[in-house]
Design a protein around this nucleic acid. Structure first.
Length: 574
RNA sequence: GCGCUCGUAGCUCAGCGGAUAGAGCAGCUGCCUUCUAAGCAGUUGGUCGCAGGUUCGAAUCCUGCCGAGCGCGCCA
């Protein structure tokens, strides 16, 4: 579907080409001075040796814009200010309204995308760091899926490695039933810390743990059974958290580190065959091109440790090979914290050198910053005073419930519970997704649960008010109008905002910068509330009423869809 | 030491080379016999860390400095 911005861009592009004698970017964007502005004349001035205003004038003359624009003006040093004609908006809005997908086409060339996210550790509590990976990954899954890509969710569970010796020994100490009890309660910190404490304090326990790791790795049956118990109980717990958080992850999506165990030997062998494997201090390593350490020496990925055990680099390489070769993935997304950036880049580079990651397949690190406390310092994982994710969720929902009770006491009990869930969870997710993910963000109970300003509840509320109009007026949305006419400034502003939906969605599908979608939706909401104040819907008559109803309905759908892509629920009343 | 981020209003953040740098919160002023006031309208508040450079044009790109955070071989 041709969107407004695309139409304007194409018309201007051909005019610019005619004037410049070669393709030139109109550099079209939204403007405070008009609906849109095109700044392309300015960079051409030097090139063409002419005044930018004259170039702009020629472009305006050459451009066919009369069916789209009510006015086209040149201002300042040579900006072309475009005001879109109301008559041009009407059919575009009607087209969008008619379309189930709100004007967003499925991807022309669908990718097979593996989204690697969440990745909690067995027998360890999920905390705010997992929140980021889970929430961002979930949004990526929802968005890419909606755009018609084949999405594979990969929950890279931390279910292998040396800690399992100590965890299994601790499990034996307290007894299987007690262990299962603690784990099923989600009391993972207690379990893990008790094991850790013994490991640090007791040398014989430490020795038992070491022996147990060897038994686990050599496939000892009894040990494997105990390990499985730990993993199963933890998975059950994580699934309960996912359910509570309303994210797409299921039991089928667990593909933990252990999943790649059988591939590690073949991976090392293949690296060796390819001549990429080096011996360094007894360890088998790969030196990917372009990475050096503090002395300027090549920086290695440790594939196999001196003791014969495999490093996480081996698992990561095996995962890439599996994903591109077995799953036929063309796009690999790693929703992992920013500190691991260099490691991931090294792995990508090594995978390229091994031929496991070649175009069109590509890998990207969807990195995110740390979660900071109100004091501006990083939440310490090991200090023990991290906030458990479940506690956070419960608190958010409880606060939302209290607020709903206060604001809208008329809601019946079951509605209130459901709304509290959507509002509380939505607030948490939106607080995360509305910030640039590459930056740290301050985790602040008060702000996160404040329902004013740029928050999920504000957007949810805007949508709920729209549905309320339809309930009140006892009308059902009509979606097959030939045209949605707009006249008032508030209507126009809303209309132009709505028509930008496709562009934002397409851009975010590539950048995975969800705060752009969040900010867009916030803009839609503020545009709507302004419209809501100034333009009565039900009290309007005839075609104006029809158009306003349709515009309201379209807004509700954009908000519902947009928030849905972010994994945020939208209550019909609140 | 090397590398990667970041430094924008009192606070939390947008701004991916373009006009007088924008929001929300907090503060101040108004607005509920009219579709949910979890709202709206207005207002106060900024040498965009500092100094150079590139450019017709820099918060945005480059260099240096100051400050904060993170990463840099057998943990993941």
């Amino acid at each position: 579907m041709a969107t407004l911005e695309k139409l304007l861009h194409d018309r201007l592009a051909s005019a610019f080409e005619a004037v410049a004698g070669q393709p030139a970017d109109p550099t079209l964007r939204r403007s405070q001075h008009a609906d849109f502005q095109a700044d392309g004349a300015l960079p051409l001035a030097r090139q063409l040796g002419r005044k930018p205003r004259d170039i702009a004038a020629d472009v305006v003359r050459a451009a066919r814009l009369d069916d789209l624009c009510a006015s086209v003006e040149i201002s300042g040093p040579g900006f072309i200010n475009l005001t879109v004609a109301n008559e041009a908006l009407a059919p575009l809005l009607a087209g969008m309204s008619r379309d189930e997908r709100l004007g967003v086409q499925p991807a022309a060339v669908p990718d097979t995308v593996v989204v690697d996210y969440s990745a909690p550790n067995v027998a360890k509590e999920m905390h705010v760091g997992h929140l980021r990976s889970t929430v961002i990954g979930d949004a990526a899954v929802r968005l890419l899926d909606w755009l018609g890509h084949r999405v594979i969710r990969a929950n890279h569970l931390g279910d292998w490695g040396t800690p399992f010796g100590m965890l299994i020994e601790h499990l034996l100490d307290i007894g299987e039933s007690e262990a299962a009890h603690e784990l099923s309660l989600g009391d993972l910190n207690t379990f893990y810390q008790a094991a850790r404490a013994k490991f640090d304090a007791d040398d014989t326990f430490k020795e038992r743990a070491r022996t147990r790791v060897v038994a686990l790795q050599s496939g000892d049956e009894q040990t494997r059974r105990l390990w499985r118990l730990l993993v199963d109980e933890s998975e059950k717990y994580f699934l309960a958290v996912y359910d509570r958080l309303d994210v797409c992850l299921t039991e089928k999506d667990f593909a933990g580190e252990s999943f790649y165990n059988d591939m590690l030997v073949p991976v090392v062998e293949e690296l060796d065959r390819l001549g990429l494997l080096r011996d360094s201090d007894g360890a088998k390593v790969v030196f990917p091109e372009g990475f050096t350490n503090r002395e300027g020496d090549p920086l290695p990925i440790i594939v196999q440790k001196r003791d014969g055990g495999f490093g996480y680099g081996a698992t990561d390489l095996a995962a890439i090979r599996y994903r591109t070769q077995e799953l036929d993935a063309t796009r690999l997304l790693y929703v992992v914290g920013l500190p691991q950036r260099q490691h991931l880049e090294m792995v990508y580079e090594a995978a390229k050198e091994a031929g496991w990651l070649k175009p069109p397949a590509r890998a990207a690190h969807i990195g995110f910053g740390s979660v900071l406390g109100p004091d501006g310092k990083i939440f310490r994982t090991r200090a023990g005073d991290t906030i458990k994710l479940v506690v956070l969720i419960d608190e958010a929902v409880a606060r939302a419930a209290a607020l709903i009770e206060q604001k809208n006491p008329d809601l019946d009990e079951s509605t209130r519970v459901e709304v509290a869930r959507m509002v509380g969870i939505g607030a948490i997710k939106y607080a995360d997704l509305s910030n640039d993910r590459t930056r740290d963000y301050v985790f602040d109970w008060k702000r996160m649960l404040s329902f004013d300003g740029n928050t999920a509840p504000y957007l949810q509320y805007a949508r709920a008010r729209i549905l309320s109009i339809f309930r009140r007026g006892e009308v059902t949305p009509v979606r097959d109008l030939a045209a949605i006419t707009v006249a008032e400034p508030a209507e126009r502003a809303l209309a132009i905002e709505l028509l930008a939906f496709e562009g934002v969605v397409v851009e975010v599908a590539e950048s995975l910068e969800f705060h752009r979608l969040a900010n867009y939706l916030y803009g839609v909401s503020t545009a709507f509330t302004a419209f809501y104040e100034k333009c009565p819907v039900l009290r309007a008559e005839g075609q104006v009423r029809q158009s306003r109803l349709a515009l309201s309905d379209l807004t509700a759908r954009v908000l519902g869809r947009g928030l849905g892509l972010l994994g945020i629920g939208t209550p019909d009343r609140m």
